[in-house]
Simulated assay, not measured.
Amino acid sequence: MSAVIGVLISIGFIILSVITGGDSITSLLSAGSAMIVLGGTFGSIITQYGPKAMLQAVKAIITLVKPPPSNIALFINQVADWSNLARSQGSLSLESVLGSTTDAFQKKGLQMIIDNTSQDDLRSIFGILSDNAYRQDMIGADVWEAAGGYTPTIGVLGAVLGLIAVMQRLDHPAELGPGIATAFTATIYGVGAANLVFLPLGARIASAAAARNRDRQIVVQGFVLLSEGKSGTLIRQNLQSFLTESKPKAADAGSEGKLGEAAGQAA
Rank of each mutant, 00 (worst) to 15 (best):
A209V: 11
Q221S: 10
S246C: 01
A86Q: 07
S83Q: 04
N238K: 13
G177V: 11
G39H: 02
I46K: 04
I62A: 15
G6M: 07
T20W: 14
G190K: 07
I9V: 15
A262R: 06
Q265R: 14
I72R: 07
G6V: 08
F42D: 00
L161W: 02
I218P: 05
T63K: 04
K66D: 07
Q265H: 12
F223W: 05
S33E: 05
A53Q: 09
N116H: 12
A57V: 09
L92W: 10
I205L: 13
I154F: 03
R216P: 00
L8M: 13
S91N: 06
L64E: 01
G229W: 10
E245L: 12
V65C: 14
S93Q: 09
A73M: 04
A186L: 10
Q168D: 12
S100Q: 11
L38I: 15
G6N: 14
T185L: 07
A263C: 02
Q89T: 02
V65R: 10
A267Y: 13
Q111K: 15
A159P: 03
M138C: 10
Q136N: 12
T101G: 03
L176H: 06
D120G: 00
G222E: 10
S44R: 07
A262N: 08
S207G: 15
Q217K: 14
W82E: 06
I164Q: 00
P200Y: 02
L8P: 09
K249G: 11
A181C: 03
T244Y: 12
G90F: 03
I11F: 10
P69S: 00
G43I: 14
P200E: 00
R135L: 05
K247L: 10
D252Q: 09
G177M: 13
Q56D: 02
L176G: 07
S70D: 13
P200C: 01
S118D: 15
T26H: 13
A253M: 08
A147N: 02
G6W: 08
V143A: 03
D103E: 14
G43Q: 13
I154T: 02
Q221W: 00
E228M: 10
N84Y: 01
D252V: 02
M54N: 00
Q119D: 13
Q106A: 09
L110Q: 10
V160F: 05
G39S: 04
A206W: 01
G50L: 15
S130V: 03
F223I: 07
G22M: 13
A183I: 05
N84W: 01
S83R: 09
G190W: 04
A31D: 06
L234E: 11
A209Q: 08
A253H: 05
S241R: 11
I205E: 02
A165H: 14
G140P: 04
L16C: 12
A73R: 06
L28T: 12
A86P: 08
L170K: 05
I188K: 07
G260W: 04
G222T: 05
G257T: 11
S91L: 03
I45K: 08
I61R: 01
I19Y: 15
L157A: 15
T182E: 14
A104S: 13
I14L: 15
V224Q: 12
Y150P: 01
V160S: 05
E261A: 13
I128D: 11
L161T: 02
R216M: 12
G202A: 09
A141E: 04
F242I: 09
A133V: 01
D103P: 08
G140H: 06
D171R: 04
V219C: 00
I61Q: 05
R236W: 04
